[in-house]
Amino acid sequence: MHETKKKNAFKRETTVTLIVLMVLPVLNWLVFWLYVNVSSLALAFQHPRTGEFDLVNFKLLYNSITMKGGEIGIALRNTGLFFAVHLLITLPLSLFIAFFLYKRVYGYGLYRIVFYLPAVIPSLVMVTAFKNFIDPDGPLGAVMKWFGNPLPPEGLLARTSSSVWVIVVYTIWTGFTTDVLLFTGGMARIPTEIIEAAKLDGCGPAREVVSIVLPLIWPTISTQIVLLFTNIFSAGGPVLFLTNGKYETSTIAFWIFTQVYGNGQLGGTGSYNLVSCAGMSFTLISVPLILGIRKLMSKVDTVEY
């Protein structure tokens, strides 16, 4: 009898504990995740002026994507470019850097700190320093002038032909931070016995990379690739600070931001329907893409160690 009473009291206490600890995060999830996403779904099907349910936002979205010089079309093209650059350039280069940091290249202690700095220093600071550096009157301009090939007077960021590529260079320049950190972390956990045994068997550096390091850190690489695909529509750089979307440099993330932010007027712009419609359409595209890439990545055998 006494035992049952004690058990019941413990159960009651468990319920109270769970409620006390979980009530705030659950309420937060219900309001800021569930309600927001359901309401975003509804907004996608609502007419921006009348509020009636129709497909006008989808027609607008389609036209803006297919129209020559359409804002969303340009943003989509640039987002794809930034995604491809990260996947095909930044990620492999990060692996390269991480490998040599792992192999204790001369000065590695300093390099691993400096290479992470772009993730620590505020974007505005990095962008301001970068803009000053590439200014026609800045250090790059002076060097180019010295070589007899001066930069255009309006600067590289103020020309449609070069602006996106300048942002691409910026994203590569500042993009190694987390990837390098994670890959170095993965490599650091490779048991030294394996490397030692391989060296005793006469394994060269190239063989070490291909046959030992890459297979052993594949879980980290595949996680990063999946994450990259998961955030495919967020790909881009600090467009707001670099060009404010001018000179055909907009991305999907920047376009969404400007649709709500406008010119910074109090209360926003109120144009949420097209944003929600575009967001829903891009989410629908990304779901099979993410599931497909996850399946593909899981097909590669991983090594347990």
């Binding site: 800021f32 995740w33 927001v36 907004l43 529509f233 999907i252 929600s276 989410t283 990304s286």
Partner: peptide, 23 residues
Amino acid sequence: TIAIFSMTIPIVGNTGAMFKLTS
């Protein structure tokens, strides 16, 4: 499951709805 799902599938473009909600 919900926690994993909301991390795996990122919902793009809910900024408008979020902005409306805060207002």
